[in-house]
Design a protein around this nucleic acid. Structure first.
Lengths: 140, 140
DNA sequence: CTTGACTCCGTACCTTAGTACGGCAGTAAG
DNA sequence: CTTACTGCCGTACTAAGGTACGGAGTCAAG
């Protein structure tokens, strides 16, 4: 018999990524994940690609993208027309670069704070707020 | 007459940052913002510091922090005991660095995608998903 | 052939982060 | 004085992103 146990069911997929089974179903409903083939008796089975996809979704969320934006990003992945892709990518690239700057400032500031601490002051004054606005948040 | 017009009311604060008045009130309820002094007749007035604070909140949200995490970050700002601050900061610093890596990968990938496009392929194949998982995919 | 661990499905519920609503009060202009 | 802004307050509603629940089917092991 073929190793039925190796089949990637929804439960295993969820476990592999570290999310709830319901979350997988939810992503399917939201079309962030294709409906997988269900060869025998209606039990879905997934591929390694699906694992990667869900991991991508989770990573993208951590850096501040909404499911909606992630949906767009994922479409870039599946060979779309170049001009459309370029437009989307340009837009997201700018977005990503803004976030990078904010994150770098945050990094530097936290690192400085730690450094101050280790030099032995008992209290620290942390210009954390200044960190993210040095650049600007010009209201439109 | 004193320049009453220069008073930073809730409406002006909201406008300065580009958020809704209700959002400011909401942040106050959530203790992300102190209750400001209300000298005459109960009308709150805010300082430039409050503007900075709200801007910080918004910037931190864009890079993926929840209001809860932001609450912690803000507490770092107001001179706390060094050991406590150091622990918090260390934790957030790691977090920030992970996000930075993901964002950098995302940046490189999007930039490559654009580059491919400009070189004239009609369709593009974008290893976008690979981008965010390079760090840790030990999927069995 | 029963039992336990999954799976399937739809629906309901929960948390986070706001937004909107309606009633009341103070001030300023017409 | 009346009308028009704001501001104050509490409560209710919304949207996004899940989570939980209950009933039914499936499958491998005991």
């Amino acid at each position: 018999m073929k190793p039925r146990a190796a089949l990637l069911t929804i439960g295993r997929l969820a476990e592999a990524v570290g999310v709830n089974v319901e979350t997988i179903r939810f992503y399917q409903r939201k079309r962030l994940l294709r409906e997988p083939p269900r060869p025998l008796g209606g039990i879905r089975h997934y591929s390694a690609e699906d694992v990667a996809r869900v991991k991508f979704i989770k990573a993208a969320q951590r850096i501040g993208f909404s499911l909606n934006e992630i949906h767009h990003l994922l479409r870039l992945n599946e060979g779309m027309q170049c001009d459309a892709a370029a437009e989307l990518a340009t837009h997201h690239l700018q977005d990503v670069r803004t976030r990078l700057q904010d994150l770098r400032r945050m990094e530097v500031t936290l690192a400085n704070l730690l450094d101050q601490c280790h030099r032995g002051g008992k209290k620290v004054a942390c210009p954390l707020i200044a960190a993210l606005q040095t650049n600007k948040v010009e209201a439109s």
